[in-house]
Each structure stands twice: as structure tokens, then as C-alpha cells.
Write a protein that binds this DNA or RNA. Structure first.
Length: 304
DNA sequence: ATGAGTCAAGGTGAA
DNA sequence: TTCACCTTGACTCAT
């Protein structure tokens, strides 16, 4: 079991998201930003290893305009060594990383331009994993997409697009149950059609479900991951922010809820991404709870 | 130097 | 029909 947090480290003064405006695009700025972003990515991973956070979600902006036609800078070759260095570090420490392309990636859009741009974004993010030399257990996570008033047609269109994705993307793509439109059961239908694994989100499951008990839902999702090709199931963990709109993530982990959730896990092996606002602070508390119940090694690795 | 407004991109649903 | 919300910082420009 690995614990992680998404995209941003709040303890370090180093980010993987330095960027600039499209209007001020230049090759020089791409060069500068990617150089900074990869340096910080490695630094964050090093920081994480020291605290036994072995799971990390990398943000979409490591390469500014990475899938935009304006960006013709050969970052793949210019930064090949730096990407490889990150990948080597991940492998050396038995870490796992993932990407979560944002809401603009919609594979089931009825607009072919949007589908094509979405595929290009997935190709860009998948190519970073290729450059790192990381295999298909490191994932690209997206939602099924829009509903467009007809669930059946929307799911069919997702499947049709999935089947024509480049292999480098398809091998790594996973779908996540969402909180309003496509439930775990919808994702299972897509899985049965094309074999895509389901990244389970416990909070979305609480928001949108068909009455399955949490323990059963977890096992249904886990069974969609091929042990060697996909690795153990990845999941997102969060809980409701009190007094806020339904679906809003909590600012800080609620330890009692997390303990109860760990009980639902039983002996299931999963890697957990904590989608909680205070990032690594809550990840540390989650690790503490998992050590208490014997699901993580009792002590941190030897001091750096 | 600082604060406010803005940033490539889609879709949903409330107002 | 418009706008806030996904999530959030970081950039950009006006002051």
C-alpha cells in the first residue's frame, strides 16, 4: 500500500507548475519552465521518499502547452535525461506516479475537434511516462465525460474513442467514477466492454451510487485491475467538507472517517491518493493511522 | 512593489 | 441565457 497526495507540495518552495500566458509564448520560456518543473518534481519526490509517501500525482503543466500546436519546442529530446532521471528515481524507490488530465479532456464529446485535442493531451502526458521509462502500472486517470442527455450513447461514444487510442495511452488509461454523472456501475459497463481499469473514488461513490456497500464497491473496482499489467488498484480518498456544497472536498483529513474506511478495505491492497486540501499534512496523518493498524511498516526508512 | 483580475481548453445545472 | 463550479496557483498588468 502506498500513500500519496496530488500535484502540489506545500512545504517546499518549489513547484512543478511554473508556466506563462499563451500570448507570451516563446521557446525560451518553455525551456525555462520545463527545466524548473522537472527539477522541482525530482525534489518533491525526494522529499516524499524521506517521509514514505510513495505515491504522487504529477500535474498536467510540467510542459506548458504540452499538447498545444503552438509548442513546437523539442522538449522531448532536450529534457530526455531529466525525465529519465525522474523515472529512475521512481523505480529505485519503488514509487508510483499518476497523471490526472483535467476536465477539458473529454473522449466522448460529440465534437470531433475536442476529441482530437483530448487525445493529444493524453499522448502528451503518456509520453512523459515513456520518457521516464515507467511502465503501464503508472496511470493516466480521467472521467468518462459528458452525458449529453443520453447515457447509453455517451458510454458508447467513449468506448468507440477508447478503441482508437494509441497503445501508449490505452495501456495506461483508467476511468474514475465521478460524483454526478457516471457511477461505478457505469464504469463497470465500460470496463466489461474494453477492459479498462476503474480508479475508485470513495467520496464520489458516496455521492453517486446504486446502494452497493462500500466494501463491495471497492472489490468490484479492484477486480478491474490486472495484477501485472496495471498493478494494484489506485484510488482517490476524500470526505465531505462540512457545511459546504455536496461534493466539496474536506480541508483536512477526518481521522475517524479514514479509520472506518480502512476497516472497509480489509486486506485489500490499494494505493491511496488523498484528495484533501492540505496535501502532505493529511498524508502524514493517514500514514500514522495505517501504521497503527499494521497496514504500513512501523517506522520510516533510514534517515536521509 | 503590490493587489486585482485573468488564464487554452468542456460540461452541467442553478439562477 | 448567463455564470459559478470543478482546483489552484501563478502570471500579468495597472496602479
Amino acid at each position: 500500500m502506498k500513500i500519496g497526495y496530488p500535484c502540489v507540495n506545500e512545504s517546499l518552495d518549489c513547484t512543478t507548475t511554473s508556466t506563462f500566458r499563451l500570448a507570451s509564448y516563446s521557446d525560451e520560456r518553455v525551456e525555462l519552465a520545463v527545466s524548473n518543473n522537472l527539477r522541482c518534481l525530482l525534489r518533491i519526490l525526494q522529499w516524499n521518499v524521506e517521509r514514505h509517501f510513495l505515491f504522487f500525482r504529477v500535474g498536467s503543466g510540467v510542459v506548458p502547452f504540452g499538447s498545444h500546436p503552438i509548442n513546437t519546442y523539442p522538449w522531448q529530446t532536450r529534457f530526455a535525461a531529466q525525465f529519465r532521471e525522474v523515472g529512475d528515481f521512481v523505480k529505485a524507490h519503488d514509487m508510483r506516479i499518476s497523471f490526472h488530465p483535467d476536465q477539458f479532456v473529454v473522449l466522448n464529446s460529440h465534437n470531433e475537434d475536442i476529441v482530437e485535442r483530448s487525445i493529444q493531451e493524453l499522448v502528451y502526458q503518456g509520453s512523459m511516462l515513456d520518457l521516464m521509462g515507467l511502465d503501464s502500472t503508472h496511470k493516466l486517470q480521467i472521467h468518462v465525460g459528458g452525458l449529453y442527455g443520453d447515457r447509453e450513447v455517451a458510454i458508447a461514444r467513449f468506448i468507440a474513442t477508447y478503441e482508437r487510442l494509441p497503445e501508449a495511452v490505452r495501456a495506461r488509461l483508467v476511468i474514475e467514477n465521478d460524483d454526478r454523472l457516471f457511477s461505478l456501475q457505469d464504469c463497470l459497463r465500460v470496463h466489461r466492454a474494453v477492459g479498462i481499469p476503474i480508479l475508485f473514488d470513495n467520496f464520489h461513490q458516496e455521492c453517486l451510487n446504486h446502494g452497493e456497500p462500500m466494501a463491495e464497491a471497492l472489490r468490484l473496482a479492484a477486480a478491474t485491475w490486472h495484477p501485472t499489467h496495471d498493478g494494484v488498484m489506485m484510488m482517490d480518498y476524500s470526505s465531505q467538507a462540512h457545511g459546504e456544497r455536496k461534493g466539496k472536498h474536506t480541508a483536512s483529513i477526518e481521522e475517524d472517517l479514514f479509520r472506518a474506511f480502512v476497516q472497509e478495505l480489509g486486506d485489500l491492497d490499494v494505493d491511496i491518493m488523498l484528495e484533501i486540501k492540505d496535501k502532505e499534512a493529511s498524508a502524514g496523518r493517514a500514514c500514522g493511522i495505517l501504521r497503527d493498524v499494521g497496514r504500513l511498516a512501523a517506522s520510516l526508512p533510514a534517515a536521509q
